[in-house]
């Protein structure tokens, strides 16, 4: 692997990311899947980086799941998204930051559609006006929340309490990065580093001391696939996708997986448990799984946040092996207690 080659490609895919005054829109599912992640994002931006982040109480789903699940038509999706833009405009913000990769993909798709077909934009403006009386401005900047953390990766590194380094050996942790499909596969120029060698998570990992693993099935989907996962009979297809990735990354002995999509960490985490229960196969060291994290959780660990405040107790594949390697302290007894309380 020649790093210069990747660097040359990364150079071609730089994107503009606003540096303050964000209108943050949450994901539908992340608060259930990884409940500490969005909270950690807000805490990092507001408390550590002193940024202005606004959330609107009337924000709804973007309909991305329904759109990709074939139950919401594109016109409806565009009108709902236009309403989010209106909320942003009314609140006096211009920089839209979605937490969800599919939202980011859908917003990008809609903005591109309007760019090429202005008559569609006019039609949607009319729909929104008729339905809600609202008007909107196109966001000045659209960046995924992982783009924002990427932008401030150095600032976060400067405040680091822990690094992605094995405290006992001094070696960098080996990290698999998994990018949500809708981040840049549809519009490569809209992702940091493009679609083939995305840099958004790699940049964070490098900056925080980890070592990136580039394994053959890196580009393969986690298997969420919306329509596929939602039907129980199709889950064998979903889990096979994750398994393909695990089989491919296993020889590299990764310490952890880091992701930037709502679905990917869910499936890469839960399916490891399922594969273990179905086939007795595990992919980590010493019969354990490979811990899977969101980028906010990793940023939080680097900044020294308590693992249970980050919601790591909600992971099905235990995170403790990574916490131990990084030297992150945690109260073992509290973990179970928190889970029971949540139940």
């Amino acid at each position: 692997m020649k790093l210069e080659g990747k660097k040359a490609i990364w150079k071609d895919y730089q994107k503009e990311i606003a540096d303050d005054k964000y209108f943050y829109v949450r994901s539908c599912v992340r608060q259930n899947f990884f409940p500490g992640s969005e909270t950690a994002f807000l805490k990092i931006l507001r408390d550590e980086l002193k940024k202005d982040v606004y959330e609107h109480p009337c924000h709804t789903t973007c309909t991305g799941i329904g759109y990709h699940g074939d139950v919401v038509p594109f016109d409806t999706a565009m009108t709902v998204v236009a309403r989010q833009f209106a909320l942003m405009t009314e609140s006096g913000y211009e920089n839209l930051v979605p937490s969800c990769i599919t939202s980011f993909g859908l917003y990008t798709e809609i903005l591109e559609t309007w760019h090429h077909f202005p008559e569609t934009e006019n039609k949607i403006r009319e729909y929104l006006k008729k339905a809600t009386g609202r008007e909107f401005k196109i966001p000045k900047n659209l960046a995924h929340a992982s783009d924002v953390i990427f932008k401030f990766r150095k600032e976060i590194a400067a405040k680091a309490k822990h690094k992605l380094i094995n405290k006992n050996t001094g070696e960098s942790l080996k990290v698999v990065e998994h990018i949500g499909c809708h981040y840049s596969k549809m519009f490569p120029s809209k992702g940091v580093g493009g679609a083939e060698y995305p840099y958004v998570l790699t940049g964070m990992i490098e900056e925080w001391g980890g070592e990136i693993i580039d394994y053959p099935e890196r580009r393969h989907c986690c298997g969420f696939g919306f329509r596929q996962y939602l039907v129980q009979a199709n889950r064998g297809y979903s889990i096979a996708c994750s398994k393909k990735k695990f089989d491919s990354m296993e020889p590299y002995k990764p310490d952890m997986i880091i992701t930037n999509c709502p679905g990917c960490p869910m499936f890469l985490d839960r399916w490891q448990y399922t594969i273990k229960e179905m086939e007795g196969k595990t992919y980590g060291q010493n019969g354990e799984g490979i811990p899977v994290f969101t980028y906010e959780e990793v940023a939080g660990l680097v900044l020294g946040y308590d693992p249970w405040d980050l919601g790591l107790q909600m992971h099905q594949t235990d995170c403790e092996p990574v916490l131990d390697k990084m030297g992150v302290g945690y109260d073992k007894s509290k973990k179970r207690e928190l889970i029971i309380n949540n139940e």
Binding site: Q232, A233, R235, G236, A240, T274, E277, M278, E279
Partner: peptide, 12 residues
Amino acid sequence: MVDFGFSINKDR
């Protein structure tokens, strides 16, 4: 081994 109501698809 647990039965989750589905099996892991074979790679085509």
